[in-house]
Design a binder for these strands. Sequence first.
DNA 1: AGTGAAACGACCGTAGA
DNA 2: TCTACGGTCGTTTCACT
Lengths: 164, 164
Amino acid sequence: MTNTGRSPARPVQLDEVSKAIIEQLQVDGRRSYADIGKAVGLSEAAVRQRVQKLTESGVMQIVAVTDPMQLGFTRQAMIGVRASGDTREVAARLAEIPEIDYVVLTAGSFDVLAEVVCEDDAQLIALLNERIRSIPGVQSTESFVYLMLQKQFYNWGTVRNRES
Amino acid sequence: MTNTGRSPARPVQLDEVSKAIIEQLQVDGRRSYADIGKAVGLSEAAVRQRVQKLTESGVMQIVAVTDPMQLGFTRQAMIGVRASGDTREVAARLAEIPEIDYVVLTAGSFDVLAEVVCEDDAQLIALLNERIRSIPGVQSTESFVYLMLQKQFYNWGTVRNRES
DNA sequence: AGTGAAACGACCGTAGA
DNA sequence: TCTACGGTCGTTTCACT
């Protein structure tokens, strides 16, 4: 459910062809293997094998991503959380909240960072007061409301249902 | 290149079937339209039409996402930036840095938040000193180094080549 | 790890409810 | 906006390099 246990140990070394395949799929995840093959100079079967390995090994995933703005979630913010006790517990509790789509434990003046996606200010305020500050161990929060998204690229963790 | 101009105006209202289709594609972006149709109770052509509309309207995108950890990017951090002058300029400069995959202008005690993905501490330190703090207008930065990612779900902005 | 060929299944356009 | 259907193209399997 959450994304503990991200294994690397030794990083995967990709050749230029695999990188090119990933770049193609970053533009269009449904592009046919045959088309990709033409672009990178490989047969369709070879592309398919590489894509399968990349996805099975967990290096890459092909998924649908949605635009919160277009779906009416007009208020986004990063919440810095200062917590006492086991910060992993606090992070786990934050991860249970559906309006929160990103939770990370950090070293620095915050213990946890969480990104919230809300429909309006009222929802954001209610979320902060009723469901975030009430979590045991949460000492204080600081909000950074998003004004304008400048750049976003997708790495990944758990890419799954966001039951809102 | 960057993601200015994200138009909503009026949010798209999705019915339950379209939501179900998106959920299917969030698990596997290459699932066949026929399979999705069986799961949501629609014909292959109907699913195809809906997916086309969702992608053309920009509500949804099907793309490949990669795991930075498995690719050897073991140091990630959120950088809070305090800036003077036009913070959009600073954000634009930050967005040009390939190791930075996320830039957002915020209201709060930071003017800009940027997420960096690095191979090691040395790269992170060099990045901060040589390329972030040297940007005109940057007054101070504060780093929150990631210890453990707890939850991550994909919304989207620009999903494009990350030339590293 | 790669290619090529044949069988199969998915995708696309169009017609019609 | 949906279903139905046929042509085309992509995918799969397998034998081979």
